[in-house]
Design a protein around this nucleic acid. Sequence first.
RNA 1: GCCCCCGUAGCUCAGAGGAUAGAGCAGAGGUUUCCUAAACCUUUGGCCGCAGGUUCGACUCCUGCCGGGGGUACCA
Length: 602
Amino acid sequence: MKDKFRKDIALLTAEAFALSFPEVKEHHSELFIFDPPQIYSRLETPRDSQMGNYALPLFELAKALKKNPAELNKKLAESQNGLTLETKEFSHLSFTVAGGFNNARIKTEILAKAAIDSVLEEEESYGSSDEGQGRKIVIDFSSPNIAKPFGIGHLRSTAIGNSLYRIYQKLGYTSVGINHLGDWGTQFGKMIVAYRKWGDEKLLQDEPVKRLFELYVKFHKEEEQDTALSDMAREAFKALEDGNEEAIALWQKFKDYSMADFNKIYSMMGVHFDYQTGESFYNDKMDAVIERFQKAGLTEISDGALIINLEKFNLPACLLRRADGATLYATRDITGVLYRWQTFNFEKALYVVCSAQRDHFRQVFKAIELLEEAEKVPVEKRIAPRLVHVEFGWIKLENAMMSTRKGNIIFLEDVLNKAISLASEKIIEKNPDLKEIDKTAKQIGLGAVIFADLSTRKEKDVNFDWDKVLNFEGETGPYLQYTHARLCSLIRNYGKPINSNINYAYLNNPEEYRVLDIIYRFPFIVREVADAYDPNLMVSYLLELAGAFNKVYQRKSADGKIDKIISDDADLTATRMALVESVRIVIQEGLYLLGISAPEEM
RNA sequence: GCCCCCGUAGCUCAGAGGAUAGAGCAGAGGUUUCCUAAACCUUUGGCCGCAGGUUCGACUCCUGCCGGGGGUACCA
């Protein structure tokens, strides 16, 4: 029971019910209504904060007791309100009856004090916690493939992973970001063959990654006519794995060009990795792991390949070695899990990878689980329960799957640049005197793209839509940034220190109350994002907060004029400015947790 | 064939047992003697894919069907 108000309501409600229905307590003491933790978890958020901050549905209880819900509720509420008068600890609460919903409301001053005092005191660390105790969360994200351009398809993993990285840091964990680059595998056999056949050094001068990508597409086209190419590619990859010098030199060249491209994008987006260890990093570590599985008696030979049979678990067999002896990505991922455990002793390891790879990760996790069972690893030291596949849907293009092989792909760099130049145009149109136009345009353009990507629940497929990504109005990143900039502007105009002369009772209109309610919930939202592994919850939250504040900002008083935040009434203004600063901090911090910056002017 | 995900307003999406199903975009109308109009207000628009079932209560859970997508061992 972490939410203080919620806890108070649960305690009071249990007590009130026992007082008003002593006969029920005697015969049915097992009912949830007598147990504060159960009440706590049943409390809901009403549709409209005007109805209250918390709602307890009593239908089930009424049914169990064969009573009318509204009448039961009425008697309960009377008893609850009686207690709020008698007991000082509960004096900030009041209860109302709405049919079968028992609604609790927190007194404005108390809610305002709880929300604003915490934010002003903790500033950027509002919402943070020490629950992680420095334990490690390993996050595998972004993970593009070498020799292919960084497509829009990699944006989701990058944006979600980066956000979770920051969320876990905020909760007191040590985040470890790993870019598991796709720098190994049969595809490099293909690249090597394609380069030898059609490529040369001169070709790669201007835009090497795009040229390499064209070779890759060409290879797949030619492969359809000429199946000998597939065999050549397999052989070339085998040569690479066997350490053939020429093959390695080519591979290294592809890798260097790609990394230069990727790093440009990461630095633009402010994404940081602690390790950029790709698949090739595990080359010399796989033999020992394969041996471990063999020793544990988990492997068998099937059609010449070394496999772990997972039929019992309704999964396809997990291949450790192909018939020709080469390893596969499952081998590398399994090795990666064991290596990371040994290196980081993590609390959890997250794999932010699209849902098409669901079966793959089930196989990998199952393989680890079987190994630990076979080796009789003590339960508390097992890795398998700590592994999480954070899966997300595809990015589709005009409702068709994007396919790197077919060349049907949008380059992320093009999207970012387009968004930035559009942001720049908007600034020149709307605020031409702005000092740092380039820097701000970059923040806004990136904010728009990242926000658009995170604004769909992660498991759903998203259709890439230029108009949506390049839209700066409505539910968008720039809308939040604009709200933040306007808050900053208020603070500049006010020009006095905030957090003095505060009388919270001044915050007495419904629009302000709603903002207070939302600010108070921020720490719980941070927690929920971590539990669901979905930054989309933060997206919705911030839109709600910004919307609620914008209503305060443009609220009209009885005379039909805007009820301005900065007015002649010094005390009222001081109090409202405390609210302004609180909203500003929460929006800034919320955006940070999404990987988006909050400009002070735009 | 088998397994998994998705189907909500013209479009893009929230809601995932509870109150009258909500936002944004697009359409219509309005708000600024300027606390940044990238905003705000009003308004049009819904058999929540279809049919059963469970429940005090179902867009939400279960079953079947229809439609879209993905996976289904030597690609990742």
